[in-house]
Design a protein around this nucleic acid. Structure first.
Length: 273
DNA sequence: TGTAGACCAAT
DNA sequence: ATTGGTCTACA
């Protein structure tokens, strides 16, 4: 569930804590979390490299390393990336530990879906990274672009919001919240939205993501930030994970349906079909 | 072009 | 049985 606000929270914290530190080694407990290169080569290549900066693209974390290398991390559903200076026992489901010259950075992931790549910084070998659409909070994501994408798709609007090629970083939580804020039913066809609705949704996307960042992310199930603490945005959600509770606007019970295989929450009155 | 299944393991 | 981000498979 780490979406853009959660990953951005982790990025900020790690940038402050580990920029300038050196990776002295890596311990791999579950080989499949290393997407590239092969695990042995991964360990050899990362050893001794300094962390020059921590960036983010969509839901990907990008660590710029010395010697022209880049470490790419995607937490997928339940991944946690935690920096700690303690050296006690590792929590269950810890699959990878980076040892730093001060402290350690561990990847802990209940569902084992998270992935890590170590690639030349100049190259483009992480396929999913290449295909990402614009950053929603950057000037590259314009209203004109978004309206044009809406116009040429017959997909359900929720599916479009979750498509990382359209815009990078939105996941299930913020998609539901943005659609609610814009008053748009999640099952509407994208091209059926009016220009007015499209504009409202464009604005809502940016608003809900900024709010999520301001609250250091949403902790519903597994998410913790880079120091192991929960975010607080779960207390501010208006519809997501709130089936049966009253809509904050009109009091109607929030409904939950399955859309594209995902739990989808909305207010049937504020978001009519 | 768009939608369903596979991957996981705790709840 | 449910949970979901992304890739793969298929219509």
């Amino acid at each position: 569930m780490p979406e853009l606000p959660e990953v951005e929270t982790i990025r900020k914290q790690l940038a402050a804590k580990i920029t300038g530190l050196t990776i002295t080694g890596a311990t791999i407990y579950l080989e499949k979390v290393i997407a590239a290169p092969a695990p042995v080569r991964f360990g050899e290549t990362i050893r001794g490299r300094a962390i020059l900066g921590v960036n983010r693209r969509g839901k990907f974390l990008l660590f710029d390393l010395s010697g022209g290398y880049r470490l790419v991390v995607h937490l997928r559903m339940s991944g946690q990336l935690v920096y700690e200076t303690a050296d006690g026992p590792l929590p269950r489901h810890t699959h990878l530990v980076f040892h730093l010259d001060r402290g350690r950075l561990r990847l802990t992931d209940l569902r084992q879906f998270g992935r890590v790549w170590l690639v030349p910084a100049a190259g483009a070998e992480v396929k999913e990274l290449r295909k990402l659409g614009p950053e929603p909070l950057s000037s590259a994501f314009t209203e004109e672009y978004f309206l044009a994408r809406l116009q040429k798709s017959r997909r359900r609007i929720k599916a479009l919001l979750l498509d990382q090629e359209v815009v990078a970083g939105i996941g299930n939580i913020y998609a539901d919240e943005a659609l609610y804020a814009a008053g748009v039913h999640p099952a509407r066809r994208a091209s059926d939205l009016s220009v007015r609705e499209g504009k409202a949704l464009y604005r809502a996307i940016r608003d809900v993501l900024r709010e999520g960042i301001a609250h250091r992310g949403t902790s519903i199930r597994d998410y913790v930030d880079a120091v192991g603490e929960e975010g607080s945005h779960q207390h501010f959600l208006k519809v997501h994970n709130r089936a049966g509770r009253p809509c904050p606007e009109c009091g109607t019970r929030i409904e939950k349906v399955k859309l594209g295989g995902r739990g989808t929450y909305f207010c049937p009155r504020c978001q009519p079909l």
